[in-house]
Amino acid sequence: MKKKISIIIKAGLLAGTLDILSAFLHYYVATGKDPLFILKYITSAVLGPEAFSGGTEMYAAGLLLHYFVAFSFTVFFFWLYPQLKILQRNCLATAVFYGLFIWIIMNLIVVPLSRIGKFPANVSGMLINAAILIIAIGIPLSFIVSRYYRKNDPAAISRERNSQ
């Protein structure tokens, strides 16, 4: 169990870091503005417009919230992987599926229910954001989780296959 928790922590840190760095880069390239704005945008999901007038504490809150979400998706994927046989067939297909799943959950459920209210609805932005999630979160998690279960807990996958 200690090894699994260690892997989950490392995978969550990796996925969260790749995702936030991708978001920073995309925002900077698209706008030429300070990419740290992204952290205040994340904070605004909880605090609303007041987040944009805050200082360092808003950046820190955004970073913590971002990693909380990244870890939540990481833990969920570690749980889901042995449950769904289809995820075990192809790491790249699983990465695409999980990245799109995250995009759907975040943009069609979480963001609309947050104090942000709605997500920017232009097609190129949606495609870029989905690609970031596939590359930064889907691919690393798919390969890390697949390797973990093959190497450390093949019985979990066997039990699931036998029960279906």
Rank of each mutant, 00 (worst) to 15 (best):
D19S: 05
D19E: 07
D19A: 07
L21V: 13
L21D: 07
S22R: 15
S22A: 11
S22G: 11
A23N: 05
L25Q: 08
H26F: 08
Y27Q: 00
Y27G: 00
Y28T: 15
V29E: 09
L36N: 01
L36I: 06
F37H: 13
L39C: 13
L39G: 12
K40S: 06
K40I: 02
S44G: 12
V46N: 09
L47W: 00
G48R: 15
G48K: 09
G48D: 07
P49W: 14
A51W: 03
A51V: 14
F52S: 12
F52P: 04
S53K: 15
S53I: 06
T56R: 12
E57W: 04
M58W: 11
A60G: 05
G62D: 05
L64Q: 02
L65E: 13
H66Y: 06
V69M: 12
A70T: 04
A70R: 01
T74R: 00
V75N: 02
F77E: 06
F78Y: 01
W79K: 03
Y81W: 05
Y81M: 06
P82D: 03
Q83A: 07
L84C: 08
K85W: 10
K85G: 06
L87D: 00
Q88G: 12
Q88T: 10
N90V: 08
N90H: 11
N90W: 12
C91T: 10
C91I: 08
L92R: 03
A93Y: 11
T94Q: 05
Y98H: 10
Y98D: 00
F101M: 04
F101W: 04
W103F: 12
I104H: 10
M106G: 02
M106W: 06
M106A: 11
M106V: 13
N107Q: 09
L108A: 15
L108E: 14
V110K: 01
V111N: 03
V111Y: 03
P112F: 11
S114A: 07
I116Q: 01
I116N: 00
G117I: 04
S124E: 13
M126Y: 01
N129C: 11
A131N: 11
I132N: 03
I132H: 00
I135K: 09
I137R: 01
I139N: 00
P140N: 03
